[in-house]
Structure formats: structure tokens, C-alpha cells
Design a protein around this nucleic acid. Structure first.
Lengths: 182, 182
DNA sequence: TAAATGTCTATCAAATTAATATGGATTTCA
DNA sequence: TGAAATCCATATTAATTTGATAGACATTTA
């Protein structure tokens, strides 16, 4: 029932982009991400490109380039991201809602394994398809603040003054005066 | 979130052993199983040996040998079987209850991904750890009967008269007069 | 004693996953 | 203008896992 590293990194990255946007600096460089999370940079690049191709991220090229969310986090379903990267949620193809495939058993309609795995699929979907990136970011932020953990993603890493505003900026959300970390 | 073929075959086999026991002929040969489910015989052999080593099955060697359940189906947790064959239920190791491992993220306690995946783990566990083999067999039997599907595992394949009784036989459960299939 | 079965271990092939490498295109800015 | 920093694109490889096959052996029954 594993989530692949690729899937893990993709979600970590998206969550970071969500946090970054919330904190007023939506644009992150690949190198910042790999530094914060300790991931192989070239591998992460591939993943970000895939997320971009799928419409989750957009990018700025050149010297002070980077990636940022292309859509409001409320609009990004965690389940869809997992499907993009790791394939269907269902443990076996014959119970997948999005990628059904007949399985080998002689009588699907009376297959005990299938009934069981359908329950599992639905259980997984009931989590992943209910949460959006915004939910995950929100609960993360809440927990960080509650425990007074320094928030990540300093407002200005070197210079990024002229970079664009978040696409669907919510109210700017005044933060408490934490010193940024890392 | 895949279940491996190995896990799939293991569960299919156990369900079949459960049905067979319920139908009064607990002992099945590997060849019968591969015939019914269409699986590679040598691969299934390995899996059955693993299930035997783990105490789920016992075996009879020699001419009219085969495998049968070693424990009452009520006592076989589907989740434990999946763990045996496919490893922990948790999508990532840092939320596993049975095989916890620290993950790469700098602050586990405030990791959004981790909170999310913990929910997924619990959702999966809430299905797989609640069902026993007996539950799966029962619902399968019920459905087969409701739809009047011929029940599998004829009482006497060739000769098996002298084979042992089921270990923890429940009431013999008079079946309706279906003709056996396959 | 021969046939039918499970037992055991080794090996292999294919697929998937994870990562690395290399060079190119674009932008910024000194 | 040109060098540095970044994203872009593709190819390659290394490691792991998965799925399966092979073959000799042991045991039981008829």
C-alpha cells in the first residue's frame, strides 16, 4: 500500500508551495526545496516538471526563476495528485473508479477479495479525495503556530521583490511575528 | 497503493480455503486452486508455504495431500495477512503502527504529509484490521447463495474420504442443493 | 514400488522505481 | 555583452521489487 518516493516528494513540494504562498512568497526555487526537504535535486526537477505539465505549477525561468502554484490550493485535490504520480488509488484494478480493469477472477460479482478491496479503495478515497491542498496547508500552519515553530520560507531569500503576486490570493493573513527558519 | 499479486493470490487462496472448509471439504490441492483462479502453480506453492510457515495453513503431504486452514477463519485477520505478504499497511513508514521508521522530513511532528498519510493508514487499517477471513467468506457465501450461483469445491474431487475433519468445525450448515462447479 | 503430491532452494526475467548525467534555453544583472 | 543562475529536456543507469520458473527431493498412498 506504499506511496512512492516520487509521490511523496511531489506532495511535500506542493505542501511547501502552499505554505510559501500563504506566507506571501509563492515562488520557490528547486534548490530551496531540496535544501529544506533533503531531496535529490534532479529527481525533484523531473517531478516539478510533471506537476507543471499537469497544471498544478507554473514556472519562471532565468536567474531568479522558480516554481509556484498555478491554481488556488482549495482547488487542488490530494487524491488527484496521487493518481497523477502513482496511479489509481485502488489496491487492485478491478475496483478502481478511475482506471477500471477486469481482473483474473472468474466471477467478479461474487469475488470476496474484490468486495474487500472495494472497501479499502473507498476508505482511501474518502481521505484523499476529500482533502485539498488548502486543507493540508491549513492544518500544517495551525500546528506550526500552535507550537510556536518558526515558519519556513523567509519573505526575501535574496531579492525577489518584483516577482508576481499569488494567483488567487486570499486575504493576506497577518502572521504573528515569528522569525523565519532555515 | 497497490496490493501485490503475491498478496492478491494469498488472499484469494485463503478465501478459497475458507469456503472449502465451510462447504465441508477443507483440504485443497494446489492444482485445484490454480485451476479455479488461474494462477501460476509454482508461484502459488511458494505463497502457500509462506502462509503455512506463518501458521495460517497446514499441509498434508503425499498422494492425496494438500493444504487446509490451520486456524478458525474468525481468527485470521485480513490485515495481518496483508502485512505478512506485502508489508506494513501505512503508505509511508513514519506513520506505520507496526513498522515505524523515521522519515526524511526535518520535523515529523509538524509534517503535513505525515498527518495526511496517517489518516490514510488509519482508513486502510479500519477496513483490513476489522475484517477476518470469516467475514469475507461469509459475505461471499451469502452473495453466492442469494444469486443462486453454483458453489465451488465439490465434496469429493476424486477420493478424499479419509481426510481429517476441519479443525474448528462450526455447525455443518446444510446447504441448499446446488450442483458444484468446476 | 510407482504415482501424486507437497518441500526447498536457486535462479531468472521483467517491470518499476529512484536517481544521475549532460547539455541546452532563458533570464537577470553587473 | 557576457557570465551566472536558473528552469527544460532527454537519455542513461543503478537498484529494487515483483512475478515467475526450474529442478531435485521427501512423503504418502494405493
Amino acid at each position: 500500500m506504499k506511496l512512492s518516493k516520487r509521490g511523496e516528494y511531489a506532495l511535500r513540494a506542493l505542501i511547501d508551495f502552499g505554505l510559501a504562498q500563504e506566507l506571501g512568497r509563492p515562488l520557490l526555487q528547486v534548490s530551496e526545496l531540496t535544501a529544506k526537504e533533503g531531496l535529490p535535486i534532479k529527481f525533484l526537477e523531473q517531478i516539478l516538471m510533471q506537476l507543471k505539465a499537469a497544471g498544478y505549477l507554473e514556472s519562471r525561468r532565468g536567474k531568479h526563476g522558480g516554481y509556484l502554484l498555478a491554481r488556488p490550493p482549495e482547488n487542488i485535490s490530494v487524491g488527484q495528485v496521487v493518481r497523477l504520480i502513482d496511479g489509481p488509488l485502488a489496491p487492485i484494478a478491478c475496483v478502481s473508479q478511475t482506471a477500471y480493469e477486469r481482473c483474473s477472477c472468474p466471477d467478479e460479482e461474487h469475488c470476496g477479495l474484490r468486495m474487500l478491496m472495494l472497501d479499502v479503495r473507498n476508505a482511501i478515497s474518502n481521505v484523499l479525495d476529500r482533502y485539498t491542498l488548502a486543507d493540508v496547508v491549513e492544518v500544517t500552519m495551525r500546528k506550526l503556530r500552535k507550537d510556536k515553530v518558526p515558519l519556513p520560507f523567509a519573505l526575501e531569500p535574496l531579492l525577489a521583490r518584483s516577482s508576481s503576486r499569488p494567483k488567487s490570493a486570499k486575504r493576506p493573513k497577518k502572521l504573528n511575528g515569528q522569525s523565519p527558519a532555515e
